Simulated scan of single mutants.
Amino acid sequence: MSKRAAMETEPLEKQHVKINNEASEDDSEGMEVTPHTDNLNVPRSNLDISRSSSTSSLGSSSQNDELGKNGNNPEETVSNDSEAVSEEVQKVPSRDIPAMNVPEKIILCIDLSEEPNYTPFKLGDGTKYAPLYMIKRVTEIFIHSKNSINKNHEFALVVLQSDTAAWLRDFTNDPSEIISVLEDMSEIQQGDTFDLSALFDVISDHVSLPQVSEPNATPPPFAVRVVLLYSRSHCVPKFVHGQESISLLLSSDYFTLDILYIHEDPSEANKCEEIFSALDDLDDRGFSYVLDVPRNTTKLHDNMAKLLGHPLQRPVQKVAYYKLEFQEVR
């Protein structure tokens, strides 16, 4: 799915996220961020450099299919091309701005659409939940976690309706105000199309991007981030009325677009891969995190946890590394 080749190399930066992931595969309960500054030995074979390297089932399958069509074994091709690895590492984007933990203005964009005959999320005890219920649950955990990291982070709420978007709650640093609105949200019928123009027009109308006179030396007063949770498996999002708003937002070093795509298992009956590709193409700068997850409760929590890192401090997704490697301390 991703346009960037998958390769293996050592990360240029290391940011480790500790996931509360000791439960069964479908019984995850929480997320915890563990700041990391030590130098750990990271095995070369453990890192997959790709646009959505962390857990992207769609991105990985698409890359392997492409390699297979060329008569290559994906694993052998990925691991043996050292020259391509070096070239890919050199392409890792960077921003020449201070990597400071400035307050974030986070716009949470929640998809309210309900798939016909959807597959529910299933916990280890057999309990089943609708996708929107689980999306609201991980969003609540995300809000509380970010608030515990920095009380000055602010949150706003946008909802994706049938074919457009609406600004539902303005910025606040009080988690309870956002969560109370989340609890009252309910599913709506899915439309045939979704207009990305409307989504980013709404965001642009409510957000002012920070201006810094000396961007190389002075941190911004705040950073703006959109966290889009898209959950449609049959509706490919499109720009119906132009891309001016998203282009304006992405022109700022202090704006980041992150996407978590929650979908059915890909099949000929749905458009999951086409949808992922459309979402993956929204930001060609390489600073976004674009993740996807099927109906797997543990992976849903894990992927939402990967969005906790500050966008001005975290490594780009190509080199993000989430496994802990233990060393003997002497």
Score class of each variant (00 low, 15 high):
Glu75Asn: 11
Ile110Lys: 00
Glu87Tyr: 07
Ile107Arg: 07
Cys109Phe: 08
Asn72Ile: 04
Asn101Ala: 15
Pro98Trp: 11
Glu76Asp: 12
Arg95Gln: 15
Glu76Lys: 07
Glu83Met: 14
Glu66Val: 13
Pro103Gln: 07
Val85His: 13
Asn72Met: 14
Val85Trp: 09
Pro98Val: 10
Asn70Tyr: 09
Val102His: 08
Glu87His: 05
Val85Asn: 14
Ser79Cys: 01
Val92Tyr: 05
Val85Asp: 15
Asn73Phe: 08
Ala99Thr: 13
Arg95Ile: 15
Gly71Trp: 04
Ile110Asn: 04
Gly71Asn: 06
Glu87Leu: 05
Pro103Arg: 11
Val85Arg: 13
Pro74Gly: 06
Ile110Ala: 06
Asp96Asn: 14
Gly71Cys: 02
Ser94Lys: 13
Thr77Arg: 09
Ile107Thr: 13
Val102Gln: 09
Val85Thr: 07
Asp81Met: 03
Pro93Trp: 09
Glu83Pro: 00
Gly71Lys: 04
Ile110His: 05
Glu104Met: 15
Val85Ser: 14
Ser86Asp: 05
Ser79Met: 10
Glu104Cys: 14
Ile110Glu: 03
Asn72Asp: 14
Asn64His: 07
Arg95Trp: 12
Ser86Glu: 07
Val89Met: 09
Glu76Ser: 09
Pro93Val: 09
Ile107Tyr: 14
Ile110Phe: 02
Asp81Thr: 01
Glu87Asn: 11
Asp65Asn: 14
Glu88Ser: 02
Lys69Ile: 05
Ala84Met: 06
Thr77Ile: 03
Asp81Gly: 00
Glu104Pro: 10
Asn64Val: 12
Asn72Leu: 14
Ala84Asp: 03
Val89Ser: 08
Asn101Gln: 13
Gln90Lys: 14
Pro93Tyr: 04
Asp96Phe: 07
Lys69Thr: 02
Met100Gly: 08
Glu75Ser: 08
Ser79Ala: 05
Ser86Cys: 00
Ile97Met: 11
Asn72Ala: 09
Val85Ile: 02
Pro93Phe: 06
Asn70Cys: 06
Val85Ala: 15
Gln90Trp: 08
Ser94Ile: 11
Arg95Ser: 14
Val78Arg: 07
Ser79Glu: 06
Val85Tyr: 05
Thr77Phe: 12
Gln90Gly: 15
Asn70Trp: 08
Asn70His: 13
Asp81Arg: 02
Asp111Phe: 08
Glu104Gly: 12
Met100Asp: 15
Pro74Lys: 01
Ala84Gln: 06
Leu67Gly: 07
Asp111Ile: 03
Ile110Leu: 09
Asn72Val: 07
Glu83Lys: 11
Val78His: 01
Asn70Phe: 03
Ile110Thr: 04
Pro93Gln: 03
Gly71Arg: 06
Asn72Arg: 13
Ile107Glu: 05
Ala84Cys: 01
Ser86Leu: 06
Asp111Glu: 05
Ser82Gln: 10
Ile107Leu: 13
Glu104Phe: 10
Val78Gln: 12
Ser86Gln: 08
Asn80Ala: 13
Val78Thr: 06
Val85Gly: 09
Met100Arg: 15
Asp81Val: 00
Ile107His: 11
Ile107Gln: 12
Pro103Cys: 12
Met100Trp: 14
Glu76Val: 15
Val78Ala: 07
Arg95Cys: 09
Glu87Trp: 04
Val89His: 02
Val89Glu: 11
Asp65Pro: 02
Glu66Trp: 08
Ile107Ser: 11
Pro98Met: 10
Pro98Ser: 10
Ile107Lys: 13
Lys91Trp: 02
Glu87Thr: 09
Asn80Asp: 12
Ala84Gly: 03
Glu75Lys: 08
Pro103Ile: 12
Ala84Thr: 04
Leu67Ile: 03
Asp81Trp: 01
